[in-house]
Design a protein around this nucleic acid. Structure first.
Length: 849
RNA sequence: GCGGGCGUGGCGGAAUUGGUAGACGCAACGGACUUAAAAUCCGUCGGGAGGAAACUCCCAUGCCGGUUCGAGUCCGGCCGCCCGCACCA
């Protein structure tokens, strides 16, 4: 018997689908409901890895299923093609980012196509296509006009050797990751998107995203970080005029205030430093005090007493010293706080160090005011306010409201909402990104470019550090669209997160002459299933939500939320191995012999270091091409979906993919000799098989709807066992008919997972056209329903017997049967039945003693 | 430190959401086929005790306690691991 040969069948079907344009998503709805499936588009690294296989296989399962269920499915693919890897490669002597990127796209497109995905390739684009980023420039200018884009001076991590701005994660121990140079804090005028305008709305919108993981919603909520409190002024006591504004979420503890602290870059601190060398030195010290998170964590609280005093707003005559403190952040709240050491850990640390008063004003429930002390540690829990004049006796929350009201009547401040979220800095001093389409004119200032796209020049060099656009002989020199005079182009390019913040909308009509074809977007958006890695839980997904809102407000599209359903899938991991010299070795070079893992070549035992994300550095990478070659694409797809729940990591193993491979062959074995249609007749075995078939149809559909692919696949494996128990050889006509029904359904049920094999099977059952175009099988409720139940009988909570009963039997009847069952009676000997609990179709529990 | 999640056989994981714990797969072991091996097929597979056997009983979902007729699932307290944020006032 000829074995199923995926190497022959798989390419054949891919070519057939392509020729028939099976996965083209028609723009015209034609009465079908739409379904938009999108996986996060890849950076074109040039090499497909197992993580991609899992991500795209997952989306493909849903897309193929929804298509079979009668939806008009959009399932597009593109390339997140701008960004630093290509530019860094060019700097290191590689080829030009453009040629390299398009070459890598070509490679990766071929590899992705090998996966047999149901993608509408006619919609493909790359973010580095001028047709795409030109439209991005168009809406960028619309946002600029609307005031959602602005420039301001901001501090950046500047690498003085590479002459570039670094992201925080590129700064390692205060040094540039590439050059190793000490990173400087530098002020540059940068472009910002006003995401903070939508802070509240972005939090509110999360509530409606009921098909998002709670975890991601929570992460976004925390990231935006809304807090309610009080902004208030402390007036200077003494000669100095004016006031310092602070923000607090604990106005109830105002009577416990013992100092004010301001950030080192607070205007007041800078003013003091002008005439106070000590303050100037302190500020300088704070600024140099490390950039990395670890530095900040280890950092001790330090302060400098400015000598200034402010008046307490409620206690006449009481004054508080104003300190400059290293732990106060300028860009949160007002950059100034009042310190209440009794009820805040940081203030307590600070006050202890500088011997400032520590006053308790919140009394924990049940504590004795005469005994209670906060000298050792602050108390941050709930309680009643005391030592606080008019606030005495109030609970914390009530006291907050009362304090805010008082401050408001004194006209010293007002209740305020503050967000942690900052505006989005999108300037990158880099070449390989979308040019910011403005010119700088000496006469007219910043002027939007009127001829789009502003195209990146190709003739640039990477032999010197810094932004090649700055060095280009002609590119930046242009004329002002406004006055026609000499002007210079902006040389900053956009953060690549901008590119990925709207691509899902562009897919709805990638050829539109405007950024977004509104009719197409209105039809397709929002994305119904968005699938990708959880590492994008905050940044990408928050930016995309923001840009969608901004584009909606500017009339480009109609939805506020781009992604109705989100699924974050786990990684593909693999065991990592080290030989006895401590060197990493590749999975291909090791072999399992009994209980030990050995080096194939030398036979020496190797150490299994653990199961980790596939990475080059640990050499625990399995190349998808090798797997496709050995087992076929279908087996690889099936395995990455089968072993673990999709949101969790899956561990790649040779044994696992071999199991999937065996399964495909066993399936084929049921079809290869033909599937006779059978005939009429009575056969209990036929009825039994039909029941299993209809139950399976229901189960597989449910498992895909719920993203529980692993349990669905388990049911498919199980069903194969059922088929083997009802072989075709010697079967009655009725059983043959039931087998035909089963195998016809099965071909369609496996199609989302193993689409190539399914097409072969579909032929064998006499299916019309592609199984990829075939409707999902229907199940009959009555056949899928269990008509017989096995009820366990517990006695005092321990399972003692089983009853096989028809489903739906009444509680009283079940009780009667249970109490007369031989096995049950044996266990009840010498005991009195006190109570019988019958849960319909589920369980019987007899309480006896 | 704050917020969230998880802990089930040798391993990945199931468990109708409070109702037969261990589906399905991997590994392992036994058997069939074969001159032999691979492949394939069939079977066993949480631990313990009893029995020739069908089977019966006890223990078991990180640990301790609670609620309940009944707890892997709910509640409280520990222990361990993972993720996010991190001086956010």
């Amino acid at each position: 018997m000829a074995r199923y040969n995926p190497k022959e069948t798989e390419p054949k079907w891919r070519a057939a689908w392509e020729k028939a344009q099976t996965f083209r998503a028609p723009a015209d709805p034609g009465g079908k409901p739409k379904w938009y499936v999108l996986e996060m588009f890849p950076y074109p690294s040039g090499k497909l890895h197992m993580g991609h296989v899992r991500n795209y296989a997952m989306g493909d399962v849903v897309a193929r299923y929804k298509k079979a269920k009668g939806f008009n499915v959009l399932h597009p693919m593109g390339w997140d093609a701008f960004g630093m890897p290509a530019e860094n490669a060019a700097i290191e002597g590689g080829s030009h980012p453009k040629t390299a990127t398009y070459a890598q796209i070509a490679n990766m497109r071929e590899q992705l196509k090998t996966l047999g995905l149901s993608i509408d390739w006619s919609r493909e684009f790359a973010t580095c296509d001028p047709e795409y980023y030109g439209q991005q420039q168009a809406w960028f200018l619309a946002l600029l006009k609307a005031g959602l884009v602005y420039r301001k001076e901001a501090e950046v991590n500047w690498d003085p050797v590479d002459m570039t701005v670094l992201a925080n994660e590129q700064v390692i121990d205060g040094r540039g990751w590439r050059s190793g140079a000490l990173v400087e804090k530098k002020k540059l005028t940068q472009w910002f998107l006003r995401i903070t305008k939508y802070s509240d709305d972005l939090i509110e919108g999360l509530k409606g995203l009921d098909r998002w993981p709670d975890k991601v919603r929570l992460m976004q909520e925390n990231w935006i970080g809304k807090s309610r409190g009080l902004k208030m002024k402390f007036h200077f006591a003494g000669e100095r005029k004016g006031s310092v504004e602070v923000y607090t979420t604990r106005p109830d503890t105002l009577f416990g205030a013992s100092f004010l602290a301001i950030a080192a870059d607070h205007p007041l601190a800078l003013d003091v430093a002008k005439s106070d060398p000590g303050a100037a030195a302190f500020i300088k010290g704070v600024k140099q005090g490390g950039v990395s998170a670890a530095d900040i964590e280890a950092g001790e609280k330090l302060g400098y007493d400015t000598g200034l005093m402010v008046a307490h707003p409620f206690e006449a005559g009481k004054t508080l010293p104003v300190w400059i403190a290293n732990f106060v952040l300028m860009d949160y709240g007002t950059g100034a706080i009042f310190g209440c050491p009794g009820h805040d850990q940081r203030d307590h640390d600070f006050a202890s160090k500088y011997k400032l008063p520590i006053l308790p004003v919140v009394l924990p429930p049940g504590a004795d005011p005469a005994e209670f002390s906060v000298a050792g540690e602050p108390y941050v829990g709930p309680g009643k306010i005391y030592n606080s004049a008019f606030l005495d006796g109030l609970e914390v929350e009530a006291a907050k409201a009362e304090a805010i009201a008082r401050i408001e009547t004194q006209a010293d401040g007002e209740g305020a909402t503050v967000f942690r979220l900052r505006d989005w800095g999108v300037s990158r001093q880099r070449y390989w990104g979308c040019p910011i389409p403005v010119v700088h004119c000496a006469k007219c200032g910043v002027v939007p470019e009127d001829k789009l796209p502003v195209v990146l020049p190709d003739d640039v060099t990477f032999d010197k550090p810094g932004n090649p656009l700055l060095r280009h002989p002609t590119w930046r020199h242009t004329t002002c669209p406004n006055c026609g005079g000499k002007a210079e182009r902006e040389t900053d390019t956009l953060d690549t997160f901008v590119d990925s913040s709207w691509y899902f909308a562009r897919f709805t009509n990638p050829d539109a002459a405007v950024p977004i074809d509104k009719a197409a977007a209105d039809y397709w958006l929002p994305v119904d299933n968005y699938i990708g890695g959880v590492e994008h839980a905050v940044l990408h997904l928050l930016y995309a939500r923001f840009v969608t809102r901004a584009l909606k407000d500017e009339g480009f599209l109609s939805v506020a939320e781009p992604f109705a359903g989100l699924f974050t899938q786990g990684m593909v991991t693999h065991e990592a191995y080290k030989n006895r010299n401590g060197e990493w070795i590749e999975p291909a070079d090791v072999e399992r012999r009994g209980d030990v893992v050995v080096d194939k070549e030398f036979g020496q035992p190797v150490v299994v270091v653990g199961v980790e994300k596939m990475s080059k550095s640990k050499k625990n990478v399995v190349a998808p091409e090798d797997i496709f070659d050995a087992y076929g694409v279908d087996s690889a797809r099936l395995f990455v979906m089968s072993d673990s729940p999709p949101e969790r990591d899956v561990q790649w193993s040779t044994g696992g993919v071999e199991g999937a491979w065996r399964f495909t062959h066993r399936i084929w074995g049921e079809y290869e000799n033909g599937v006779p249609r059978g005939g009429e007749g009575d056969d209990p075995k036929a009825v039994e098989l039909r029941k299993h078939t209809h139950r399976l149809i229901k189960a597989i559909g449910d498992s895909i709807e719920q993203f529980r692919f692993n349990t669905g696949i388990a049911r498919l494996y199980e069903f194969l066992g059922t088929l083997k128990g009802a072989p075709a050889a010697g079967a009655s006509p009725a059983l043959l008919a039931a087998r035909h029904e089963a195998l016809s359904a099965l071909a369609r049920l496996i199609a989302p997972y193993t689409p190539h094999l399914a097409e072969e099977c579909w032929i064998k059952v006499g299916g019309q056209g592609f199984v990829a175009d075939a409707p999902w099988p229907e199940y009959s409720e009555s056949l899928a329903a269990e008509d017989e139940r096995i009820l366990p009988v517990q006695i005092n909570g321990k399972r003692r017997a089983e009853l096989k009963l028809p489903a739906g039997m009444s509680e009283a009847e079940v009780e009667k049967i249970a109490l007369s069952d031989e096995g049950v009676l044996r266990h009840l000997e010498g005991q009195t039945v006190r109570k019988v609990i019958v849960v319909k179709d589920r369980i019987v529990n007899i309480v006896a003693n």
